[in-house]
Amino acid sequence: MHQVKGVVARAKGQPVELVTINVPDPGPGEALVQVQACGVCHTDLHYREGGINDDFPFLLGHEAAGVVEAVGPDVTGVAPGDFVVLNWRAVCGDCRACNRGEPWYCFATHNATQRMTLAEGPDAGTELSPALGIGAFAEKTLVAAGQCTKVDPAARPAAVGLLGCGVMAGIGAAINTGAVTRGRSVAVIGCGGVGVAAIAGSALAGASPIIAVDIDAKKLAKAKEMGATHTVDSSSADPVAAIQELTGGFGADVVIEAVGRPETWKQAFYARDLAGTVVLVGVPTPDMLVPDLPLIDVFGRGGSLKSSWYGDCLPSRDFPMLVDLYQQGRLDLDAFVTEEIGIGDIEAAFEKMHHGDVLRSVVIL
Rank of each mutant, 00 (worst) to 15 (best):
D94C: 09
A221I: 04
K5S: 15
M353G: 14
V290G: 11
L305M: 12
N22S: 12
V290R: 13
A64W: 08
A159C: 11
G342H: 13
V40R: 06
G342N: 11
S316M: 04
S185R: 05
K218P: 00
L18Y: 08
G166N: 12
R89S: 10
P103V: 02
G166R: 09
D123N: 14
Q328I: 06
V213G: 03
D82V: 10
R10N: 12
Q114A: 15
A200F: 02
V259Q: 07
D238M: 05
V85T: 03
A159S: 15
R301S: 14
V160Y: 04
C148D: 03
P286W: 03
V362N: 10
K306P: 00
S361Q: 10
G300V: 11
V151E: 11
G66C: 04
K218C: 02
A187I: 10
S234A: 15
E225N: 12
H2A: 02
F83S: 09
T231F: 11
I210K: 08
L246W: 12
T229H: 09
I215W: 02
L128R: 05
T149N: 04
V67K: 12
T113P: 00
L365F: 15
V194Y: 01
P73F: 09
D297H: 09
R10S: 13
C41P: 07
G195M: 07
Q244D: 13
D345R: 06
D44R: 04
K352W: 11
V19Y: 02
D238Q: 08
E120Y: 01
L18T: 12
A155H: 00
E102I: 00
V337P: 03
F250G: 00
S307C: 01
F299V: 15
A158K: 09
E263H: 12
V290F: 15
H2W: 06
V278S: 08
A158T: 14
M116L: 10
A207W: 10
A174F: 01
G77M: 14
G248W: 02
G178S: 04
G101P: 04
V196R: 01
V160S: 03
N111Y: 13
F56E: 02
L60E: 06
G183C: 07
A200E: 05
P239C: 07
D55P: 00
S307P: 00
W309Q: 11
G121L: 03
M1R: 10
G50R: 05
D152T: 03
V323R: 02
S129K: 14
C148W: 06
P122N: 04
K12R: 13
A138G: 01
E120C: 05
T264K: 08
E127A: 14
G6D: 07
P239F: 06
G344T: 09
K5N: 14
G135T: 01
F350H: 11
V279Y: 07
D123S: 13
L118T: 02
G50A: 10
L289E: 15
V91L: 01
G329V: 02
F56I: 08
I215F: 11
L128P: 11
A252Q: 11
A258Y: 09
P315W: 01
G125E: 06
F58K: 09
A179C: 06
P73T: 04
G135H: 04
F350G: 07
K224G: 14
G248L: 11
D82I: 08
S316H: 02
G66D: 06
D292E: 14
P315G: 07
I296V: 15
S208F: 13
G201V: 03
V240I: 14
K218Q: 15
D345E: 15
A154Y: 00
G146S: 08
S316E: 13
L333C: 05
G248E: 10
D357M: 12
